[in-house]
């Protein structure tokens, strides 16, 4: 459990936000460049438990890079990412590749645009996979996975392979997989990007219910205003900088722009 201890102090002080709850994940002065293009030019962000944050912006504004940096997928060039785990503050920036991999596996959950589930495995096996990777016996892992699938309305579809599910159903399996380990932060990259509006609505409800509804945090990168509108806060990026933080009914930030 090396990534939970010891807590390392960082400069990543969470900026004030309207959530009034202690942050669970913070990014401070995050900078990331790819060759000559700057993806992140000093981003500060704090995400609280039980909060859902939509990250929006035009293509190339740095929103996916921000998500990858916060999730420990891509290390930033400078700045700090801090994760407040049950046992204290963890400096994600200071972790090596395998520690970050373990953090993602055990503390975070992910939902991608296409689901990206393993096509050969059944819905149940896909959902149980993170638990099996964490060392749970297969029977127990599948038992817990079953629970989540039923909770997400996929009871009776456990033995179906991913190709035998609709896009919305596959996305729910991905949500179940993201939450089966009890991840306290779930990152979703365009989770409804490949779905029609009705299915998109359902999937978003499932995603919010299984994360925020459990007191966990949700970070969503999206182009879709209706998806963003369902989150408790919208962070808009432009050219790698935060343009605005918009809470439901409240606007704050250096260059406040209301949605």
């Amino acid at each position: 459990m090396n990534f939970f201890t010891p807590p390392q102090p960082t400069n990543a002080m969470p900026p004030a936000n309207s959530a009034q709850r202690p942050p669970i994940l913070t990014g401070s002065s995050l900078v990331k460049t790819y060759g000559s293009s700057t993806a992140l030019a000093g981003v500060d962000i704090a995400i609280a438990a039980g909060e859902s944050v939509a990250i929006m912006g035009a293509s190339g504004s740095g929103k996916t890079t921000l998500l990858h940096t916060l999730a420990g997928i891509t290390p930033s060039d400078s700045g700090h990412v801090g994760f407040y785990s049950a046992s204290g503050l963890v400096d994600v920036t200071a972790m090596n590749e395998s520690e970050r991999s373990r953090l993602r596996r055990e503390a975070f959950g992910f939902v991608f645009q296409q689901g990206l589930l393993i096509p050969e495995l059944t819905a149940l096996e896909n959902t149980a996979l993170p638990l099996m990777l964490a060392g749970y016996p297969r029977r127990e892992a599948e038992g817990r996975a079953q629970h989540w699938l039923v909770a997400l309305g996929l009871g009776g579809m456990e033995t179906r392979r991913i190709g035998e599910l609709s896009g919305g159903q596959a996305q729910r399996v991905a949500i179940a997989r993201a939450q089966v380990t009890g991840a306290t932060v779930v990152f979703a990259d365009e989770p409804t990007g490949a779905l029609d509006s009705a299915t998109s609505e359902d999937v978003m409800s499932a995603l919010l219910g299984s994360t925020v509804g459990q007191g966990h945090a949700l970070v969503v990168v999206t182009h879709d205003e209706t998806v963003a509108a369902r989150c408790s806060r919208v962070v808009r990026l432009r050219d790698g900088r935060v343009l605005s933080h918009t809470a439901v009914g409240t606007t704050f930030g250096s260059n406040a722009v209301t949605a």
Binding site: I73, S101, R105, F110, I118, L133
Partner: peptide, 9 residues
């Protein structure tokens, strides 16, 4: 790539 991002070793 997605499995790697999920933290699958």
């Amino acid at each position: 790539v997605s499995l790697d991002r999920l933290g699958m070793p």
